[in-house]
Design a binder for these strands. Structure first.
Length: 723
DNA sequence: GAGCACTGC
């Protein structure tokens, strides 16, 4: 043990600090089953469901990195390396060495015989890249297209890139992709990787998905809102497109039918549920290829997970061989404070020790801040990566050998109110078992690794198996409106999990309030126009209202920025005052040339990527306006009222009035809300406000706040009575 | 006085 560490005040104070041998319980047995990575194909069972080991990094990890070059599966990364290295195996040989390859013929046979197949594949099995190629090469796809859906854009694009190379074709010819703002596909395209949101959008113009002969739903276990909507629709489409097999031998099907095959790819935990949903679907298990990860559990519960994480880090640093450490924490606040603490103690280490390189990682970080995490670790240094869930599925960090898992994450959950409103909560909670496995798996990417869980094995066992499907915990108004467009309804559509009545009711009320649905719950012409925009209904309604107020130009600007995925304002605790000054007082006039944008953004603490995304969104909205015959150029100049009033039509349920005590009370619903401290209107005592969202953390905060006149609120009330 | 992660022809 390092003398320096023992000397540090923290450890002197902490009698509870224990040597790893006694602190950590060896969870153990998951290693043995994975010792021989290539001996996998016996694992391809055409019948029944192989239970994966009860613990261990067996879940499929997500794929892709923020800088875009990590492939979807482990072999994807290796592949991108092989382009530059002659020492690598030839391409086809690489393909044939994938775990899934030896089961190829049996797999193809199963796909041929079954309408629906559930494929359980562990990390590194190669299923996402190989199965579409098998389907194409074996003729199962006939002359239709094969769609492979992904929850994330980078996954879709990098998978397509890789499969195009394996097929030796140009990307966009027979292998392509389609994600928002970016499409590489043509009339030739046979295998199309796409985001689940994209194919759900396609449903609106082609409710039977008749272009596709096979739809592969990948990462189905993540249960994203759009994956769930897709799966529900696929079941309906199956009934409509596939001729029922009457009697054996007679079930040839009509010549004019265009039957659909469905392959659901999932990690192990939820497999049976998918199988049950598509009654009688075949479940097939494919073993993966992942290095063993030794998992330790804490012998007792930890009260202070940040402190425990720090002590564990130094245990690793002083007692284990080189290799980077990845610490999972719930949020930015924890990351920033732990970064400081670890740095202080790391500075006290003796000179001859390995030094520590801190790498914080979270989504709202200034762009470029996190680039050092992807650079090779300097000699005689250990990276300490402090990350949110961003490192669990979205970003793959090379070189990680040790994972410290606090067992906590932040979860966004929508609380619907019967009034039609509702608000988001963002609270720290325990992670799920599948999340814990995913985190542990992050230590086994490049070699054997270790995972230290700051919770007991019993605590692990009492965790939920997997997180609640997104459809159960988000606002449904946008999805409901989309479904209404194709004559469907959340109440009648057969979903894997049905959202709460209150949540559906609240969406109905909101859509009614916005004029998108009438009293009979039928879609109105306003509703159809709203659904054409890839926006939350509150924003599409504002665009439609802007026609009347003559300010579509301005409203498009605002809505684009509000619906960009990350906030355009950069957050930095160290330069908080400068950021605040920039936000409150500077006039932000954009530079003409895009080339200046990066520097201009940095000087004004703006997130360049978010601004560019907003720009893309704006262009898309402009095209939608054009299609709908809304003149996107009408402008109100410098006048504020038309803009606020347009937004007011969309945000009519998001109004609050100043109370004598300085708080705000909603005009609909009774909640007391506070203006979020990041708002320029905080402490300004504006009599009436309008906001774009409510978030409950330790209080209910209104974010995206604007001033609005009380007299206009009265007008809105009148309008409501008229409709 | 404060910000988990994704996504949309």
């Amino acid at each position: 043990m390092s003398v320096a560490v023992k000397k540090s005040p923290l450890f002197n104070n902490r009698k509870s600090f224990k040597h790893p041998k006694s602190t950590w319980m060896d969870a153990g047995d998951d290693d043995r089953k994975r010792k021989t990575p290539l001996k996998v194909n016996a694992g391809l069972l055409s019948n029944g469901y192989h239970k994966s080991p009860s613990d261990g990094p067996s879940l499929k990890r997500a794929r892709k990195s923020i800088n875009g070059h990590a492939g979807s599966e482990g072999e994807g990364r290796r592949f991108s390396v092989s382009l530059a290295s002659t020492k690598q195996l030839p391409l086809q040989e690489q393909r044939s060495k994938l775990p899934i390859a030896k089961g190829k013929d049996a797999l193809i046979q199963e796909f041929r015989e079954n309408e629906v197949t559930v494929l359980l594949g562990e990390t590194g099995s190669g299923k996402t890249t190989q199965v579409p190629q098998y389907l194409l090469e074996s003729g199962i796809a006939r002359d239709g297209m094969i769609a492979v859906t992904q929850p994330r854009k980078v996954a879709a694009t990098s998978l397509a890139t890789r499969v195009a190379v394996e097929q030796n074709v140009t990307l966009g010819s027979s292998v392509g992709y389609s994600v928002r703002f970016d499409e590489r596909s043509s009339s030739e395209t046979r295998i199309k990787y796409m985001t689940d949101g994209m194919i759900v959008r396609e449903l609106m113009s082609d409710p039977l998905l008749s272009k596709y002969s096979v739809v592969i739903v990948d990462e189905a276990h993540e249960r994203s809102l759009r994956t769930d909507l897709l799966i529900a629709n696929l079941k309906t489409i199956l009934r409509q497109r596939n001729t029922p097999q009457d009697v054996k031998g007679k079930g040839k099907g009509r010549a004019d039918t265009n039957p659909l095959k469905i392959i659901v790819m999932s990690a192990t935990l939820d497999a049976e549920k998918f199988g049950r949903f598509f009654s009688g679907a075949k479940i097939i298990y494919v073993q993966g290829r992942q290095h063993p990860v030794k998992i330790y559990h804490s012998s007792q519960g930890q009260v202070d997970y940040a402190d425990a994480a720090m002590r564990t880090f130094f245990q690793i640093h002083t007692e284990y061989p080189p290799g980077d450490v990845l610490i999972f924490l719930p949020g930015q606040e924890d990351i920033e404070s732990l970064e400081k603490t670890i740095q202080i103690y790391a500075n006290q280490l003796p000179q001859d020790r390995m030094s520590v390189l801190m790498c914080p990682m979270y989504a709202s970080q200034a762009p470029g801040q996190n680039s050092k995490v992807f650079r090779p670790t300097p000699p005689n240094t250990r990276k300490c990566i402090l990350a949110t869930n961003i490192a669990e599925t979205s970003i793959t960090i090379p070189g990680v050998k040790f994972v410290i898992d606090t067992g906590k994450c932040k979860e966004k959950r929508y609380l619907a109110r019967n009034t039609g409103g509702g608000f988001d909560t963002l609270l720290t909670r325990d992670i799920t078992q599948s999340s814990a496995m995913q985190r542990a798996g992050r230590a086994g990417r490049e070699g054997a690794g270790y995972c230290f869980r700051l919770y007991t094995e019993d605590a692990f066992k009492t965790m939920a198996l997997s997180s609640e499907p997104e459809i159960m915990r988000c606002s449904l108004s946008s999805s409901l409106l989309q479904l209404k467009c194709i004559g469907q309804d959340l109440e009648t559509l057969e979903l894997m999990d049905q959202p709460a009545d209150e949540s559906m009711k609240s969406s109905l009320i909101l859509l009614f309030f916005l004029g998108a649905l009438n009293q009979k719950k039928e879609i109105t012409s306003i509703g159809r126009q709203m659904a054409a925009f890839p926006l939350e209904p509150i924003f599409s309604r504002a665009i439609i209202a802007s026609k009347e107020y003559g300010c579509t130009h301005e409203v498009l600007d605002i809505v684009s920025i509000l619906s960009a995925s990350s906030k355009i304002f950069v957050e930095s605790s160290e330069q908080r005052d400068a950021v605040s000054e920039a936000r409150h007082t500077r006039k932000l006039t954009s530079p003409r040339a895009r080339a200046d944008c990066k520097d201009w953004c940095r000087r004004h603490f703006l997130n360049e990527r978010a601004l560019l995304e907003a720009n893309d969104i704006r262009e898309q909205l402009r095209q939608t306006c054009q299609r709908l015959g809304i003149d996107h150029q009408t402008s109100c100049g410098d006048k504020e009222d038309p803009v606020i009033h347009s937004l007011g039509h969309g945000l009519a349920m998001n109004l609050a009035l100043l109370q004598p005590d300085g708080s705000y009370k909603q005009t609909i619903g009774q909640a007391i809300v506070k203006i979020h401290p990041s708002s320029t209107l905080c402490d300004k005592k504006t009599p009436a406000i309008i906001y774009d969202e409510l978030v409950y953390t330790n209080q209910i905060y209104a974010r995206g706040v604007s001033r609005i006149s009380k007299s206009f609120i009265m007008t809105l009330g009148m309008l409501k009575q008229e409709s």
